[in-house]
Design a protein around this nucleic acid. Structure first.
Lengths: 143, 143
DNA sequence: ATTTTTGCTTTTGTTTTGCAAGTAAAAATA
DNA sequence: TATTTTTACTTGCAAAACAAAAGCAAAAAT
């Protein structure tokens, strides 16, 4: 997957970077479910194949959306964390959540977060801020 | 491309529907550049192949994002228009625009809309409303 | 009547994705 | 300490999606 841009439209370029089946899903899982290891991602409900996951993590790191580090007490497990650039995708992910919640009706998700999305919609800005803040607090607690 | 959903996460499902390289690009070109015919889309700066365009238009129509009609005075040209469901994607496209504008630096687009995005950001809600309204007014003028 | 335009489809690659298996090093367990 | 398990990958191969080019039929323009 080349990092080339089709044209100089910022919307199209954003899609060139993040508009594939997996990149935003990985970022979402980092953000909302606190996933941070290869194992975490590969066990997510989306069932990403490990070769795809590996290539996506590499690309996300190369493009500055995530960092890859090893914790002090473990030489094996890699910890992937969102950078500021990665966190700057939150507004896009929030809009996808609102849209998906309003427009996709999956039988088995009737019991899911009803009304939650309405709350987000009413104070989107502070929801985004809080999500970013709480992610940052969580990763501070790791080191 | 099947319309199946990987899991019951609304974000992932939104990506299942619109998270490919072309669907949102076509919608964007309808919305911002008033494109509405096969020819319009195939001549856009993204250079979509006609077979891909054909399959994307079919899928967008099947999923209720666009309609396909023939104008009264022309038996040949098809007119593709965004439905309400298609227009409901505007907030996502706006966030992609803001993100792309802030994060992607393409050499040849230095002269592009500087400051415009800041304006959008300051009153996002009314920008979205106006974009929707102006699209609807334009398509009224067609019939 | 002929040429051009429009909206496709078809053909033939190439690239990306997905599944299954394999692997090497580290960590946990016996 | 030896063996087993876990983690983070890579490899190989099949399937699906994408892309470039050509072809085509009907409508519109000349």
């Amino acid at each position: 997957m080349s990092a080339e841009f089709r044209c100089n439209c910022p919307i199209t370029s954003a899609i060139d970077l993040m508009g594939d089946k997996w990149s935003l899903v990985v970022v979402k899982n980092m953000l909302l479910y606190n996933q941070k290891t290869f194992k975490d991602f590969s066990e997510a409900s989306e069932n990403i194949a490990t070769n795809i996951l590996s290539s996506r993590l590499k690309r996300l790191e190369q493009n500055g959306f995530i960092t890859k580090t090893k914790p002090l007490n473990n030489k094996k497990t890699n910890i992937y964390l969102l950078t500021e650039k990665g966190l700057s995708l939150i507004p896009i992910i929030v809009e996808l959540a609102i849209w998906g919640d309003a427009n996709i009706h999956i039988p088995s998700s009737q019991e899911a977060e009803n009304g939650q999305i309405a709350v987000i919609n009413n104070d989107k800005e502070s929801f985004i801020k809080n999500l970013k803040k709480s992610y940052k607090e969580k990763i501070e607690a790791i080191d």
